[in-house]
């Protein structure tokens, strides 16, 4: 075991050499931890305020998974920094705190956009990943991210993204109960208070971002449809669901339109819509290659597994995978 001595000596020397650097990294790590804790707390407070109620030390310790003592220390620290005020067991954001909170929210929602649009990550996974990333950027980096994404106004769930000044773009919306019959609308908000109503809406299967129309309304119930399923809600409950008009790109097509991936080989079709869910790099590439609304496409060949397929678009042959072609709606052109 004599050989251990030089090894230990060497390790000791290395440790000495690295000590200052290690200490610096440890301090950076601690600062990052603190930043995450503060930012998560701010987000919790903002969230509560948006719901029209106030956060309390209890709700904060529950949301962040902290012990009581830790929560008290955190609140004291944030009060000292001028981020919140604690009054009668209620926590209130100061203007500075609200600004910071909105910035975190902004980073979070921009990251969600990035992960959904550019990294093509499934919607179910993006929240957790965005949560990990939201604390890492400086303000300038957030702005670069926003520019890169083309200044989106909503996150993939339909929630507004605050701008640099903390302003939220509002999209004219109104409760389902006031929505005209048979007009398609997109669900932009589901009020999660009172919880009973929220649970009923969730149990019915209505989701943010869904496109619905009101089929029938009686004093007892509203019948709404998303094209496939019908939902019945009591008016008092339906009032908690807000819808807004569709953007031109979100228009729903029915009848003879079908996804490009289902257009038979050698059959011509006209592009009627590119699914708004398809954003980012992929959408830009499709547009650059001439797959715009109104373009004529014809599937010309496919591999033996069925994808990718090659489509004739504006005189060129472009291969697309199935999941891309699924997002492009075409109307077959009648021949002869």
């Amino acid at each position: 075991m004599e050989w251990l001595i030089p090894v230990v000596l060497l390790a000791g020397l290395l440790a000495l050499a690295l000590r200052s650097r290690l200490a610096a990294s440890y301090r950076a790590w601690r600062a990052q931890q603190e930043r995450e804790q503060v930012e998560d707390a701010l987000k919790h407070l903002l969230n509560r305020e948006h719901q029209g109620r106030h956060a309390s030390p209890e709700s904060l310790s529950g949301a962040l998974g902290l012990s009581r003592a830790q929560t008290v220390r955190l609140i004291e620290r944030m009060e000292a920094q001028g981020l919140l005020q604690s009054r009668a067991e209620q926590l209130h954001l100061t203007p500075a705190g609200e600004r910071w909170a909105l910035n975190v929210l902004r980073a979070h929602r921009l990251w969600e956009r990035y992960l959904a649009d550019e990294a093509r990550m499934p919607l179910a996974q993006i929240h957790a990943e965005a949560h990990r990333r939201e604390h890492t950027l400086s303000e300038a980096e957030v702005e670069a991210l926003e520019a890169n994404l083309g200044y989106p106004q909503q996150d993939p769930h339909g929630d507004p993204i605050p701008d640099r000044a903390g302003e939220m773009p509002s999209r004219a919306s109104c409760p389902l109960t006031d929505w005209p019959t048979d007009e398609p609308g997109r669900i932009v908000h589901i009020e999660d208070e009172p919880a009973v109503a929220y649970q009923q809406i969730a149990a019915a299967g209505l989701k943010l971002g869904q496109t619905v129309r009101v089929l029938e309304r009686t004093p007892q119930r509203l019948t709404i449809s998303d094209g496939e399923n019908e939902y019945r809600l009591a008016p008092a409950i339906a009032a908690n669901v807000s819808v807004s008009p569709l953007l031109p790109t979100e228009r729903v097509f029915d009848g003879d339109a079908l996804p490009l991936s289902k257009l038979p080989l050698h059959r011509e079709g006209e592009v009627v819509q590119i699914d708004p869910a398809l954003q980012g790099l992929t959408r830009r590439r499709l547009l650059d290659l001439g797959l715009t609304v109104g373009a004529t496409v014809r599937p010309e060949m496919q591999t033996f597994v069925g994808e990718p397929r090659a489509y004739r678009v504006r005189g060129t042959l472009i291969a697309l995978r199935k999941e891309q072609a699924d997002h492009i709606l075409v109307r077959p052109i009648a021949h002869y």
């Binding site: 678009v313 504006r314 005189g315 060129t316």
Partner: peptide, 9 residues
């Protein structure tokens, strides 16, 4: 010349 439309963009 064989794909002028795309090039015109």
């Amino acid at each position: 010349a064989t794909a002028l439309e795309r090039n015109l963009n």
